[in-house]
Design a protein around this nucleic acid. Sequence first.
DNA 1: GATGAATGAGTATTCATTCAT
DNA 2: CATGAATGAATACTCATTCAT
Lengths: 206, 206, 206, 206
Amino acid sequence: MDERKPSRREREKERQRGEMLTAALELFSKRGYHGVSMQEIAKKAEFAIGTIYKFFKGKEHLYTTLMSDVAVKYHAVLKEVLSTDEDTVAVLGEYVRTKAGIFADNASALRLHVGWGRGASFDIRAGLDEEIGRLYDEVLEALALVMETGVQKKVLKALDPHYMAVALDGLTNAFLFCWLKDSERHPYQANAAMVMELFLRGSLVR
Amino acid sequence: MDERKPSRREREKERQRGEMLTAALELFSKRGYHGVSMQEIAKKAEFAIGTIYKFFKGKEHLYTTLMSDVAVKYHAVLKEVLSTDEDTVAVLGEYVRTKAGIFADNASALRLHVGWGRGASFDIRAGLDEEIGRLYDEVLEALALVMETGVQKKVLKALDPHYMAVALDGLTNAFLFCWLKDSERHPYQANAAMVMELFLRGSLVR
Amino acid sequence: MDERKPSRREREKERQRGEMLTAALELFSKRGYHGVSMQEIAKKAEFAIGTIYKFFKGKEHLYTTLMSDVAVKYHAVLKEVLSTDEDTVAVLGEYVRTKAGIFADNASALRLHVGWGRGASFDIRAGLDEEIGRLYDEVLEALALVMETGVQKKVLKALDPHYMAVALDGLTNAFLFCWLKDSERHPYQANAAMVMELFLRGSLVR
Amino acid sequence: MDERKPSRREREKERQRGEMLTAALELFSKRGYHGVSMQEIAKKAEFAIGTIYKFFKGKEHLYTTLMSDVAVKYHAVLKEVLSTDEDTVAVLGEYVRTKAGIFADNASALRLHVGWGRGASFDIRAGLDEEIGRLYDEVLEALALVMETGVQKKVLKALDPHYMAVALDGLTNAFLFCWLKDSERHPYQANAAMVMELFLRGSLVR
DNA sequence: GATGAATGAGTATTCATTCAT
DNA sequence: CATGAATGAATACTCATTCAT
């Protein structure tokens, strides 16, 4: 009865849940975990405080759900990109551009994401990181796989593929930070190109 | 080397201040700004709560002092390294190794530092970042200057020196993260070498 | 007589507010502003501390509300008396008896009122006095007006009406103090009569 | 050895005690009992905090001593005046003028005195009032005695002498309040004359 | 189911008092 | 003896969470 098509009821539920999460994200990203009260979230989401508690066990649960949702959504997109069966360099380029695009589209979610979740205490993050960390690592692994393939195809040097993945990811993050600080001076398309250039060819004149 | 000899009193003061900061650092780095109470810090530092307040105007002041101290100390070391008048590549190598060494020596301070200070609510960071952000930017600028010299010397490619600085810094951070997570599998010396390799020569086979 | 009918909710609210104020008054009058903690007030009023804060912004607000309420209520009664269009001496007699009656009915409120509000630190009184002082002055002015009329009617001597008002008020207070200390020995009806006698005819044998 | 002339030591002690009390009075009268910290008093008096505690058992003791001292000093003067063997009316006139003079000379002490000591919690006042109340009552009794003599001399009406004393005292206080608020508009000499006029002859035209 | 009033544990900070120097 | 550094009890106020309506 409840498997196939979500009854109207359930759709409504989902919509409400979404509104709560949206409100929470907006608030958390601006003022951090401890800077926001449940009453505020309730008011912004236009629900009674009690209703929030029908959907989420507590503030912590709401926060971790938020983080998970964000992580799930974004990392899914990246894994998709990385599973393409194309030319290694093209895939990597697409990875960087996609990641940049995600950042550009979700500036506010970023504040929660960047640095992998500070803002809440580390206790809270403990359980969280298991989930998020796993998702992140999956992307990194997928990226490493692409690298490995590249190495086998002799497109990339014979370096540790995992480290290459770490490197590309770190490079991306660094440039994305620049963009986050001053998106005028550092348009992300330019950033993306720069990242690829530096990653693929290095800085040394030969 | 200092102002005459710091009277025993003053030395004692300094020692106490240090103990407080150490206790606070340990606690903050584990549980974040809001996850730690002043009582806890006092207990850990083995001082009465009132004594803490003789040294620091308040929790915020204690926290920002901590951040500043760490930032000042470490970024001073890096600027020192970057002002050396040696061969570009050697300087960069030294930069990476020094940064790695700093991280290795101060694992707990890191948790506060990484991502440059989120963890406190955003209000608190406001004043803080001006200081810390400035210090960080100074290091980045110094790094960019080294890059520029390298470009002029035709050691490095004719890319934007500032972006090259961002790249090397990002690369370093990424590997340092790896090391932070699992220092067994990723000895920092190896990390340092890897960073240099990737930064200087890129990943592409030619 | 009021705005429609106060919903049961609102009546309940009002009752709660009243209980809080009553508890606070009792405590403040016995031990002064700083001698009472919010916890104590909450316990005495049989509410949770948080509930008190739903009704009053803070301790100061609770205190000033108390003072204002008392002042507003009592001074309204006195102004009513003084606006009667009767024989001057009758009005003054009624003023004294009414004031005495008020004191008799509100012994505890007195402790806050007498001396016009010291007991709270001076900071707190600042904003408060503007309100309370004004109310008190209004009564004094009304009393002075009655005096002036009495002078014009040749019932009272041609002295400064304002000073006469001050005198009668001071006389009343002095006797009320006596009564407050030992209400057995100084029944307020006797006090009232004495005040009138002394005020109207003086002490000198002619 | 220590009876007759106070050794220099003791004189010094007395001077120090005086300085402490002066500083405390100044502070207490401006900001009330709870608005002033012992550290502040120590700083203002230019003694170490510990030294204050050599002279006074605690804050409360310091405060009550202050009140007592003030009371003792002023009521002594008034008793002196009231013990004069002169014409009743002259004595009463002198009483009012002296009291006014005292007020004029000690505006700051007033704030502590007026209303008989609010500013501290009532608990603190409990023991205090025993002392101060007794002194005050002694003056009142002395005043009553003068009244009684006046009655016997047929200078005053045959009213209760104690109530007459209360009346004159209340009248004085009321006018002194006026003067305290606005000493320009209410010069105390004028006040004193007014008090006598009203007390002796009343307000009624015959 | 939805609501939001009531709850009370938790926390930064102050300040009277002590006591080693 | 004077000092003032150290102490820690005390307190106003916030906010996550519950539960009667």
